[in-house]
Design a protein around this nucleic acid. Structure first.
Length: 437
RNA sequence: GGAGGAGUGGCCGAGCGGCUGAAGGCAGCGGUCUUGAAAACCGCAGAGGGUGAAAGCUCUCCGUAGGUUCGAAUCCUACCUCCUCCGCCA
C-alpha cells in the first residue's frame, strides 16, 4: 500500500513559501482584483505535515518488521502469526492516515488552485486599467484628411466582412472574411511567423483541443471554466483560448537542460473564447469574437533571466507593428489589471483612428514559476544539479484579427479603399491596395 | 469502431510475492593508464517528500487509479497511452 509522495499534489504556489510568509503573500495578493480567500490554509498545512511525519514513522516500523517476517517465515511459524496480527494493525493505521492526508491535500489544492500568481515587486499597485503607466510610445497618429471610419464599416463597404451571414451560420460574434481580406488575414499569419522564426523562435503548430489538466497547467482552470468552450465527449476537451495553453504544456512534466534555455516557440492558432462576462461589450465588428486568430510567442527561461526575456518578447511583438508602420504604445499592467497566471505583464495597444482609441493588440506576460509549478516544468542548471522550476512567458505576436482591424483603420482612404503596407505586399502576391468587390 | 500485443531508470533490457531502487548493456560523469587521444580498468551516477544549519536520517515512486496481502514491479480490477492487422475517413 503505497504512501503518497512525490510532487503528485503539486501546489500552485510554493507551499512552504506561502506558509512561512503568509501575511506578506496575502497582502500582495490583495492588490489584485477579485476576492481572496485562503480559508483554513494554515491549519491544513500543519495537519499535512503532521500526517507525513506520523506515516513515515509507521512505514519505517512496518518495513523493519517485514524484514523480520522474512526470517521468521522459515524459522518460527508460530511467532509469525503473532507478528502478522500486529502488522495488520499498523497497515490499517497507515491506510487511515493516508486517506486523511489525501483529503487534506485535496483541500489545500482546491484552495491554492484558485489563487492567482503573486505580482512581481516591479508591478505598480492599482485597481484598473486607468492605473497602468504608459512605458513608451512608437510612431504617431496618422493624419487622415477625412473622418476615419471604423473597421467594420470599411470591411462591409469593401464587401469583405460579412457579419450577418456569420450570425446566420454560427450566431453572434463570428465573421466571414472574404476575398482580399481573407487573404490579408492569412498573409499576416505567415508574415508574423516569418519574422519571429528569423529571431530564433521555433514554429509550432499545436492541437486546438486540450484536456482539462492542460488547461489547469496554464491557469485557465479551474477558475475560469465559463470562459472556455468544452466538448461533450469523454474525455471532455477544451477549445484552446490561446496557443499559450498547448505550447506551454508542450514541456509539461519535463526537465530541460539549463544550457538550452531560453527555449522559444511561436505558434499560430485559432483561439476560442466564450466571452461570458463580455455581454454588450464590443458587440460590433471584429474586436471581440468567439473565434479569432493569433500568433503566440512562448518562452521557457531561467528564473534570473525571465524578466529580461519579457522585455525582449515585448519588443519582438512591437517589431511586427513597427514593420507594419502602426502607431502604438506599451503599458505596464498594474496589479489590479493583470491576468491570473502573470506576475508581470505589458500590454501593447495599437492606435485605431476609427475608434479614436488605443486598443490592446498584444499582452506579454512573465508567469514566473506559477505555470511551471502547475505543469511541472523544470530545468537542470548544471549536470548533476537538482532540477528546479523554470519560468514561463507568453505573449501575442500578434492578435491577427486586431491587426487586420488596425490595418483597415490606419490605411483607409476616403474612397473606401485600403492601402497595403510595404512589408505585406510580398505576402499579398504583389497586391498594393484593397478595392471594393 | 473490431481483433491482437506492449507499457520497468537518459536509452536498450532482465526481473519464482520478501534477498530488487531495481541484474546486464549503452550513453554520461570522475579517476588510473597514455606525449595526447582511443582502448582497457576502477569508481560515481534517477525523481520527489518529511526532518535538519549541514552532513545525514527516513519515506515514496517500475503507465495511472484502486484492490488482495504482514509484505506487490511481480497477483486481481478498471482506466490511459503506444504498436500491429481489419474497417471507415480529410
Amino acid at each position: 500500500m503505497p504512501v503518497q509522495g512525490g510532487y503528485k499534489s503539486a501546489p500552485m504556489l510554493d507551499l512552504r513559501y506561502v506558509a512561512q510568509n503568509f501575511d506578506a503573500v496575502v497582502a500582495r495578493l490583495k492588490t489584485r482584483s477579485g476576492n481572496l480567500d485562503l480559508g483554513p490554509f494554515q491549519k491544513l498545512f500543519t495537519e499535512r505535515r503532521e500526517l507525513y511525519v506520523a506515516m513515515e514513522g509507521l512505514a519505517a516500523r512496518r518495513n523493519t518488521a517485514n524484514d523480520e517476517m522474512k526470517k521468521k517465515a522459515k524459522e518460527d511459524p508460530a511467532a509469525l502469526e503473532a507478528l502478522r496480527g500486529d502488522l495488520r494493525a499498523v497497515s490499517q493505521e497507515i491506510k487511515e492516515k493516508e486517506a486523511r492526508l489525501k483529503e487534506v491535500e485535496e483541500e489545500i489544492n482546491r484552495i491554492l488552485l484558485l489563487i492567482p500568481n503573486i505580482p512581481h515587486e516591479s508591478v505598480p499597485v492599482g485597481t484598473s486599467e486607468a492605473d497602468n503607466p504608459v512605458v513608451r510610445t512608437w510612431g504617431e497618429k496618422p493624419n487622415l484628411p477625412f473622418t476615419p471610419r471604423q473597421h467594420f464599416d470599411i470591411g462591409e463597404k469593401l464587401g469583405m466582412l460579412d457579419f450577418e451571414r456569420a450570425a446566420k451560420v454560427s450566431g453572434s460574434r463570428f465573421t466571414f472574411y472574404k476575398a482580399a481580406l481573407a487573404r490579408l488575414e492569412r498573409a499576416l499569419v505567415t508574415f508574423m511567423i516569418d519574422v519571429h522564426t528569423q529571431k530564433g523562435y521555433t514554429e509550432l503548430l499545436p492541437p486546438y483541443l486540450v484536456l482539462r489538466e492542460t488547461m489547469m497547467g496554464t491557469g485557465q482552470l479551474p477558475k475560469f471554466e465559463e470562459d472556455a468552450f468544452k466538448t461533450a465527449g469523454d474525455p471532455e476537451r477544451f477549445l484552446i483560448p490561446t496557443a499559450e495553453v498547448p505550447v506551454t504544456n508542450y514541456h509539461a512534466d519535463e526537465i530541460l537542460e539549463g544550457g538550452q534555455l531560453p527555449v522559444k516557440y511561436c505558434a499560430f492558432s485559432p483561439c476560442f473564447r466564450a466571452e461570458a462576462g463580455a455581454a454588450g461589450k464590443d458587440t460590433r465588428g471584429l474586436i471581440r469574437q468567439h473565434q479569432f486568430h493569433k500568433v503566440e510567442l512562448v518562452k521557457f527561461a531561467t528564473p534570473d533571466t525571465s524578466l529580461q526575456e519579457l522585455e525582449g518578447m515585448t519588443d519582438d511583438a512591437c517589431d511586427i507593428l513597427r514593420r507594419l508602420g502602426l502607431h502604438h504604445r506599451v503599458v505596464l499592467l498594474c496589479t489590479g489589471d493583470m491576468g491570473f497566471s502573470a506576475r508581470k505583464t505589458y500590454d501593447i495597444e495599437v492606435w485605431l483612428p476609427g475608434q479614436q482609441a488605443y486598443r490592446e493588440i498584444s499582452s506579454c506576460s512573465d508567469c514566473g514559476d506559477f505555470q511551471a509549478r502547475r505543469a511541472k516544468i523544470r530545468f537542470r542548471a548544471q549536470k548533476g544539479d537538482k532540477p528546479q522550476l523554470l519560468h514561463t512567458l507568453n505573449g501575442s505576436g500578434l492578435a491577427v484579427g486586431r491587426t487586420s482591424i488596425a490595418l483597415l483603420e490606419n490605411y483607409q482612404r476616403e474612397d473606401g479603399s485600403v492601402a497595403i503596407p510595404e512589408a505585406l505586399v510580398p505576402y499579398m502576391g504583389g497586391m498594393r491596395e484593397i478595392r471594393p468587390l
